[in-house]
Amino acid sequence: MERREFLVGTSAFLAAMALKNKAFAVDESYPIIDIHQHTDYMGRTNDQLVNHQLKMGVSKTILLPSGSPVNYGSTHYGYSNGLQAKATGNEVCYALAQKYPDRFLFGANEVPDVPNAANEIEKYLKLGACVIGESKFNLECDSPEMQRTYQIAQEYNVPILMHWQYNMYNRGFERFHKMLSKYHKVTFIGHSQTWWGNVDKNLTNQNILYPQGKVTDGGLTTKYLNDYHNIFADISAGSGLKFLLRDEDYAKGFLNRFQDKILFGSDCYDPDATGPTCHGSNLIAAIRRLAPSVDISRKILYGNASKLFKITV
């Protein structure tokens, strides 16, 4: 599981990387947009979330809601409610964005196969939601229910952010090129373990969610980014951080090659943004350290999201 599995046995690793990146942790020369945060994430209060983002130096944050809590197969019969992270839904994200309009934007989400899914998503898109997601459900990526969500994204001209996790969420990653072609007007944003693991051509066992060692170029994720104009990468959470740090030489080239398609997100539930388990702070530091130039790090941390979501700071 994206959050729990990453933390088990990695505290020392993250502490070491935090020290390594410490000098790069704060830089106010340009703003930062965080495209991936959650309200009430693993019990963190919204006041803690506000302070967390401020301490990271984030200027604007997109809040990604969960869907309704339901006992459906698409939520593993309730196990995955709250995005499997106790995250709260549309109304909470909307309310926090209304309270702090200068700091937060909000997304729209719903379990795709509940009867009112389309109406619920459209309700918040009409209120100003800038993205659909986080789409994290136990459904085939080309199922009728998911395709209806893509159609809504197309109709409202908003991106959709998808959590790819083998045999768990958004099944059928190897078939997703068909959806990229069919819904070529929709901007898709890829995220999580299966997304980042499949940068590596040699990832043959999809059950390995956090592969280690040198990366061999040419994996399915890389092909999607190369071949399709409408797919972007959300470099957030433990999966994004581990990708950057497993093979830093490869990561530098990757950041250079896809500098116009990578978006920073934290997807971090750390309460104060100062500990070694704060994915967001460590990601910011790693991006600044590994990006081949300040211009590229600025694109990833600010410029690409500003352009895609039409955000000005």
Score class of each variant (00 low, 15 high):
I189S: 10
V158I: 04
R298K: 15
E110A: 01
Q147G: 05
L63G: 04
L244F: 04
L64H: 00
S143G: 00
A251P: 03
A286H: 04
L255D: 00
D267F: 05
T75L: 00
N170M: 03
N170H: 01
M17D: 15
R148P: 07
K223M: 10
L83I: 05
Q84L: 15
V26S: 14
N256E: 14
V215T: 09
K99P: 08
A129G: 05
Y156H: 07
L14C: 15
I132K: 00
A25C: 12
L209C: 07
P31M: 07
A85W: 06
H38F: 05
S266T: 07
S135W: 11
S239V: 10
H229W: 12
Q147A: 09
P276F: 06
A95Q: 14
F173D: 03
Y250C: 11
V186A: 06
D200H: 06
L125E: 00
Q48A: 04
N109C: 08
G265H: 06
E5N: 14
I287V: 08
K123F: 08
A285N: 02
G213I: 05
G128K: 00
R44L: 02
L49D: 13
T45A: 10
T274M: 15
E28T: 13
A237E: 09
H36Y: 10
R171T: 12
S181H: 10
K136A: 15
I208E: 11
G78E: 05
N90L: 04
G218Y: 08
V186I: 09
L220N: 07
L209K: 08
K261T: 02
K136Q: 11
M1C: 14
W195E: 07
I35C: 08
G190R: 02
I121T: 00
D102L: 12
S59A: 14
G133C: 02
H38C: 03
A25I: 13
L63H: 04
V92E: 11
N157D: 15
A118K: 15
T75H: 00
A273R: 03
Q84N: 15
T277P: 09
I33N: 04
K99H: 08
A233K: 06
F6K: 04
G9R: 06
G128P: 02
D295T: 12
L139H: 08
A273M: 04
R175A: 12
F173H: 05
Q37H: 12
Y302V: 02
A97L: 05
A15S: 14
G197C: 05
P271N: 11
L244I: 07
Y302T: 02
L245Y: 05
E28W: 08
S143F: 01
S135Q: 12
L54N: 13
V114A: 04
S236P: 01
N226Q: 15
H229L: 14
Y210G: 09
R288T: 07
L255C: 02
L19E: 15
I311F: 01
Q48H: 01
N207M: 14
S29R: 07
A291C: 02
V186P: 02
N90A: 03
F24T: 13
R148E: 14
P271C: 11
D234G: 04
C130P: 08
H229E: 15
E134P: 04
E140C: 13
E248N: 07
K99R: 10
K242N: 15
T10L: 10
I287F: 01
C278W: 05
T277H: 11
R298C: 12
A305D: 03
G253C: 07
D40G: 10
